[in-house]
Amino acid sequence: MDGLAATLRALPPSCGPVRLIAVDGHAGSGKTTFAARLSGTLGGAPVLHLDDLASHETFFGWVPRLTEQVLRPLSQGRTARYTPYDWHRARFPPEPESAASLPPAPVVLVEGVGAGRRALRPHLACLLWMDMAAEDSWHRGRLRDGPVLAEFWDTWTHAEMTHFAEDSSYSFANFVVRRGELGYEVRKGPAGGR
């Protein structure tokens, strides 16, 4: 992790003063856990969870919100402010009630399915892909969420397959990350390490 963190810090900024790093992969592949670990190794780099921008109505329709509320301010060196989606109430709460902020730190992580999608790639300094087969990832996610969300997972897996069929980010990954018994293994991805 220390070597990866050093590599990411050395990259040129990609979104204003920010080095925007995407952590992409299938749902259940460990993106959130890995991003938290990487954030700690980077000294507390801010993390944006794409689940905060998605919704029940549109799993992958968050690009306009991301562009307006996050990318535009960060590219101008300003703190981004956005309202995280409430998955339990199935709505975006009123903004003042639960607005979140994302400072224009030297490194900002964006984690979630689709973090390396076509619309974001021009703003990324680096794309990391969590190396786990879709079926294994989804099985882990279903175990994590339990039978209460089984119907959600049925809908989600179809949407995710459709998304990656139309906009595959794996082939653009600079690094591929696999969780091993001794921690994370990082190797060059299809697009090559930077």
Rank of each mutant, 00 (worst) to 15 (best):
W129V: 00
A133D: 15
F60Y: 14
Y85N: 03
H163F: 11
P106D: 15
V70T: 08
L143Y: 00
P17H: 10
G77K: 10
P12A: 15
A10C: 09
L143W: 03
L71Q: 07
A173Y: 01
G141F: 02
P147C: 04
A100Y: 09
E166I: 00
A119M: 11
E97L: 14
S39E: 05
M132F: 04
W87T: 04
Y184Q: 02
T33Q: 08
V107N: 03
E95Y: 10
R91C: 15
T41I: 01
S168L: 09
A125Y: 00
R65E: 11
T162H: 08
Y82P: 05
D2T: 13
A191I: 02
R9M: 10
L71E: 08
L53K: 04
Y82V: 12
W153V: 01
A5P: 08
G192R: 12
V176S: 13
W129R: 03
P94K: 07
P190S: 10
M130V: 08
R65W: 13
S55N: 09
T157L: 00
Y184S: 06
D51N: 07
G44C: 10
D167A: 05
A125G: 07
L120V: 14
L109E: 02
S39Y: 01
R194D: 12
R117A: 03
R37I: 01
D145C: 06
A165K: 04
V110K: 01
P104I: 06
H49F: 06
F152I: 00
W87L: 09
G61F: 06
T67V: 08
P96T: 12
E111Y: 07
E151R: 11
F92R: 11
R81S: 14
T155Y: 07
F92C: 04
V23C: 10
E97H: 13
S75D: 14
R142D: 00
R81F: 14
E97M: 10
R179I: 06
A5M: 09
E95D: 14
R81G: 09
T79Y: 11
H26P: 06
P104T: 04
R187G: 13
L38M: 09
A115N: 02
E68K: 14
L149V: 01
S14V: 12
T32Y: 08
A45S: 05
E166M: 04
E151C: 01
A45P: 05
S55T: 11
V63N: 10
E95G: 07
L38F: 03
L4N: 08
G193R: 04
S55R: 07
N174W: 02
P12I: 10
V23Q: 10
F164L: 03
A36C: 02
R19P: 05
D86A: 07
H123G: 04
